[in-house]
Design a protein around this nucleic acid. Sequence first.
DNA 1: GAAGTATTTCGATACTTATAGAAATAGTCT
DNA 2: AGACTATTTCTATAAGTATCGAAATACTTC
Lengths: 192, 192
Amino acid sequence: MERDKKTSDLVEFFKVLGEPNRLRIVGLLAQRAYTAEQLGAALGVGASTVSHHLTRLARAGLVSARSESYYNLYSLQTNALSDMAKTLLAQAQPVRPESEQELSDYDRKVLATFTTTDGRIKTFPMQERKFRVLLRHILPSFSHGVRYTEKRVNEILSKYNDDTARLRRWLVDFGYMAREGGGGKYWRVDEK
Amino acid sequence: MERDKKTSDLVEFFKVLGEPNRLRIVGLLAQRAYTAEQLGAALGVGASTVSHHLTRLARAGLVSARSESYYNLYSLQTNALSDMAKTLLAQAQPVRPESEQELSDYDRKVLATFTTTDGRIKTFPMQERKFRVLLRHILPSFSHGVRYTEKRVNEILSKYNDDTARLRRWLVDFGYMAREGGGGKYWRVDEK
DNA sequence: GAAGTATTTCGATACTTATAGAAATAGTCT
DNA sequence: AGACTATTTCTATAAGTATCGAAATACTTC
């Protein structure tokens, strides 16, 4: 199993399957092996066209061929499909995927103590250092360069704790977010 | 969750992701929400191009937008990705997916009795009617219009039972396959 | 080796679409 | 209301590619 797939491989994979006849070929080969001639008849296209599609499918590692008498029999490389599906599932994980990985042991421990498994804040620590860990835990939910209404800020914060008003004030007090004087707009402060 | 996806939807899904910049957009949005402007800057393309891509991504149900002050914030619809991944995993099941569905209750019962969960034949039934169910169970592993060598026939049959010689003879005797006089080639007999 | 078969390669064409820029639109701020 | 901003729509262009038919290739059979 490959260590990590290059983006270009992924693009190729999708591009290959993003063509009606190729997808139909994959659907057919998922049931049994076919010869190129049979595929052409099933799809209503010429032999050279089928050949072209099979070449692209093979280049993406989706089909393999074996020779049998006059014919070549093509069959689906089911591993390629399921591998890709797993890659997709990994990508589609909940939220904050990248921050989670870069956390120090200390941060991870603090979060384990003060948040539930789904990321909500149970209680607020007394020590400032631990407190900042929680605020940085929240921060990725806000984008840089965007001005948020107070209503929207509360909406987002409510995912972490019901006391949105205090959370909101703390984010400003500790310098993670800024508040506009008049209009009541908030935005994330660019780090360094 | 949708009942069943149309093929055209699947094609659209893959086509949408089979474009480098769109895949990069999905990658970015998987981490946090972006504005269209930020995406354009990150990809190095114009605003109208980003708009075009976002439209296609939205049409495929992959991204959603919410308005925030001047900006529109786009975020990934993670459900769409994981749903699709599950569909893919379902497709990538072992072998014989379609025949399994069209089986009568009787056939299903016979197979449950005489085959293991992975499709191998445990023992051979005495009654001819049940015996034919097993042979038809094997048959999809052979393609129409292809002449197989005896060696290859045995290879395929060995997936079902070790006694490949008897299986092979039975397939011929019951009229499911034919054997060439001299050369020792076998082929599947067209039904009807 | 000669004849026969399936498949691939080549050349040409038609269709799709990614992209940029300009103009139009929709929404927000003062 | 008027100024301002981000986004979308429109138009045109360039690049990619699905498709076919013909010729070339590879392999099997006798």
